[in-house]
Design a protein around this nucleic acid. Structure first.
Lengths: 148, 148
DNA sequence: TCTATAAAAGATAATTTTATCTTCTATAGA
DNA sequence: TCTATAGAAGATAAAATTATCTTTTATAGA
């Protein structure tokens, strides 16, 4: 579907957004811990997100990651695009190099429905919406802690 | 989304189905060529499909792969299940280990729509339907040959 | 029974993705 | 200006997936 890196990236961006405000900055260690992602790998992903201006980073003491107001209203698909690219939303369900309405694979129509639904899901949802949901306690960006 | 192996497998099964009848058997070389898949890898995949009784194989001279009548009406999801398993249709869109209506990730509802659409696409389509489409010339299971 | 054929099984290799580790750079504050 | 902090960049490693190669097994026909 989408890569693990991309999923970590979305969770990380949501977390940063959920803590936005008051000049607060988050460091890699915190972010990785809170979204249950490997630290060094998360650092790489945050780097990409910063380059694509999805979040913002500042080096040095008191530095870290944060999200600016204008970045909050971006659709989640921007994160997918930054990390995986947009090809998932164009690729053939049966792996053909060219597959379109004019030269379709036999599952083209059915698959397109699912692929378009996926694209809409990411396109129509903003980072701030997800952060809000998490802050309201209705949803989660880390794994459940299992009771013993 | 689904693995390359699985896509090769679906294309191969459709091809075998499209040539079904008259006791005709197809060998690995032909199948791989016709569906534009690497030969040795296709052999492995056909092995899996045979084990799961999605297609049938016979060793030895005049042997090869074919599909029996009862196998033709199977939904394509059986192929996905044989090669990739059913987890794609259950997994969280943001990669959480547990994600459900009661402990959802913030994209749960939107993602579920796409994931369910994908499952339906594979569940509601049979191998014979796709083979028929290919035989009628309306769709393709190999890459277009580009004119020079 | 022997031989040729074709798939199955097993071993190995290449590639991609995920993950980690080390060094470099920017920045704040003393 | 010096030092400590924290991200960026680069190199390396581990794991998973894709792909290939070799050997074994089953089978039809001579």
């Amino acid at each position: 579907m989408i890569s693990k890196a991309c999923k970590y990236g979305i969770r990380a961006a949501i977390f940063v957004a959920s803590r936005q405000g008051g000049g607060l900055k988050l460091n890699i260690k915190q972010i990785a811990r809170e979204v249950d992602a490997p630290e060094a790998f998360t650092a790489k992903i945050l780097q990409i997100l910063n380059k694509h201006r999805i979040i913002t980073s500042l080096k040095g003491p008191y530095g870290g990651f944060f999200i600016e107001d204008y970045q909050l209203e971006q659709p989640v698909i921007n994160i997918v695009n930054a990390i995986d690219g947009m090809s998932v939303f164009r690729e053939c369900g049966l792996g053909l190099k060219q597959c379109s309405a004019s030269h379709p694979c036999p599952m083209h129509d059915q698959y397109k429905i699912a692929r378009d639904a996926l694209q809409s899901a990411f396109q129509e949802t903003t980072i701030s919406q997800l952060a809000l949901e998490v802050n309201e306690g209705g949803s989660f960006i880390n794994n459940m802690v299992l009771e013993k």
